[in-house]
Design a binder for these strands. Structure first.
Length: 484
RNA sequence: GGCGCUAUCGUCCAGUGGUUAGGACAGGGCCCUCUCAAGGCUCAGACACGGGUUCGAAUCCCGUUAGCGCUACCA
């Protein structure tokens, strides 16, 4: 069993493409099959290296490995050979009609819909082989077209893995192009030839290809006498209701954008998996293992899904549910595993020290474990956690307010003395010392608690203050309290 | 215009002839509490419309409407 994901490097990898890849990957994983990554770069005009790199980057970030990688542009001879074979057996013919633009067909279509001139260019498919060869040899440009058996009554039928039985009459199928007049294969030809030769058994792709499939089935049959199984995924729509696209929705749909915003790959995968599919029941937070175990093609919806991002917001653009899911994963995954993602984040911020991997590892893990309970994105670690990893941190305005309260600074200095004298320094002993001090001075414990949080972490919000004392340690605690 | 696909809360999903139509996100309120989150409880919020079939339709059929897709010598 072999599946493939075939992006064309004409832009970045967007959510829709990533989800197609995910579903293919999940499907293959379940059936012990192989995943082929095929770069459909036949459109040399639009394909770029930059685009290829960002697609690969996005795919790698997801941590879903593929087994083989191919480039369609390197298979041009195979496509040409297949075209020749198709022409030789009469499944295709040369059309010498000059090219027409995309809108010409619609324009020539009669209002009553009766005229179907677009199905073929009259006269061309009846050209004798001798005349066709002679004109081609004379250098006259032509496009190679597939010969749909319009003379037959039937049509093309197949059973879609998701959409079920599909049927279309030959009469509604055009003689589509196989090779352009410049000799380049069209997407249809290249794609089908490669699918056959790469022995792809299951094609799972976007629903925008559902109607193309009638052409492909015919081509597959002409090429190999059989065709792969096909399944189409409902489309991902933007908030405006149109198909997700780079052109309309911009970089906000780019996968690496989510990586850079601090999403965890497994959370993002969880989010994508829930778009057009559900494990039944009411479970929403799923680990990768659970996804692999529960994924089922028969559970794929047939309705398009809207991705709720907000392109008008610079910092709140991500889909709320994706953000929520990220928080869920961030808080529930093993700390050691989370550390793999936190480390680069701290390195980026310039706070990472080598001892974090050595002598201070346990302490850092405990710190990350404590502060992650109120974080949702990885970027929170570099945005809000400086005081836990470095001595040079600023005290936020809201935190300063807590220090400015009546009796706060004096109380904290007194607290520093008490804590310094403590034989045991931990959550409980600190709490006892603080509360009795507050009692003696006749102030509310909250004054010292919130003040201490401000002095120690530079923030007015965060974990329980007594936890912070422990995380920061006795020496630094005393120093920071005295510095107020 | 033609062909096709689809239609449950604002959004993502449950629901496959009999349910007070369920959950999640987002929103409101309450609780917890040293702050902020998290968590718990709670409120509000949907079967596009019209015909059938049936004792009984969100569920089956037909139509309408709407959305989306395809309709290129793009992929």
């Amino acid at each position: 069993m072999r599946v493939r994901f075939a992006p064309s490097p004409t832009g970045f990898l967007h959510i829709g493409g990533a989800r197609t890849f995910l579903f293919n990957w999940l499907y293959a994983r379940q059936h012990k099959g192989e995943v082929v990554l095929r770069i459909d770069d036949t459109d040399l005009e639009r394909s770029t290296d930059a685009s290829l790199r960002t697609i690969l980057e996005g795919l790698e970030w997801l941590e879903l490995a593929w087994d083989e990688q191919h480039y369609q542009s390197q298979r041009r001879e195979r496509h040409a050979l297949a075209a020749e074979a198709l022409l030789a057996k009469g499944a295709a013919y040369r059309d010498f009609t000059p090219a027409s633009g995309p809108d010409d067909d619609k324009a020539s279509d009669a209002p009553d819909g009766k005229r179907k001139a677009w199905l073929s260019n009259p006269g061309q498919r009846e050209l004798s082989r001798e005349e066709s060869d002679r004109r081609a040899a004379a250098g006259e440009p032509f496009v190679l077209r597939f010969r749909t058996p319009h003379e037959l009554d039937g049509g093309v039928a197949f059973k879609d893995l998701v959409y079920g039985k599909q049927f279309r009459k030959f009469a509604d199928l055009e003689d589509f192009a196989l090779v352009r007049s410049d000799g380049a294969p069209t997407y249809h030809l290249a794609s089908c030839v490669d699918d056959v030769e790469l022995r792809i058994s299951h094609i799972i792709r976007g629903q925008d290809h559902l109607t193309n499939t009638f052409k492909h089935i015919q081509l597959f049959e002409a090429l190999s006498g059989s065709h792969p199984q096909l399944g189409h995924l409902p489309l991902l729509l933007g908030p405006d209701g149109s198909k997700l696209s780079k052109r309309r929705h911009g970089p906000i749909v780019s996968v690496v954008n989510y990586r850079d915003a601090g999403f965890l790959p497994q959370a993002f995968i969880n989010f994508m998996a829930l778009l057009g599919w559900s494990p039944k029941g009411n479970q929403e937070v799923l680990s990768q293992q659970e996804l692999e175990a529960k994924f089922d093609v028969s559970g794929i919806l047939r309705t398009n899904a809207v991705v709720q991002f907000d392109e008008t917001s610079a910092d709140n653009w991500a889909p709320p549910k994706a953000v929520w899911l990220n928080g869920q994963h961030l808080r529930s995954m093993p700390v050691e595993q989370l550390m793999r993602y936190v480390k680069p984040e701290l390195e980026k911020a310039g706070w990472w020290k080598p001892e974090f991997d050595g002598a201070e590892r346990e302490k850092i893990l405990a710190t990350v474990d404590a502060i992650r309970s109120r974080y949702t994105l990885l970027s929170d670690f570099s945005l809000r956690a400086k005081a836990y990893f470095s001595d040079e941190f600023e005290i936020e305005d809201k935190a300063v307010e807590n220090l400015n309260k009546e009796g706060a600074r004096d109380g904290l200095r007194a607290l520093a003395d008490r804590l310094e004298a403590l034989p045991q320094f931990n959550h409980d002993t600190v709490e006892e010392a603080l509360r009795s001090l507050a009692d003696e001075r006749g102030v509310k414990p909250g004054l010292l608690i919130n003040g201490a949080r401000a002095a120690l972490s530079g923030q007015s919000v965060g974990p329980s203050a007594f936890e912070v004392f422990e995380l920061i340690g006795k020496d630094k605690t005393v120093a920071r309290l005295r510095a107020v």
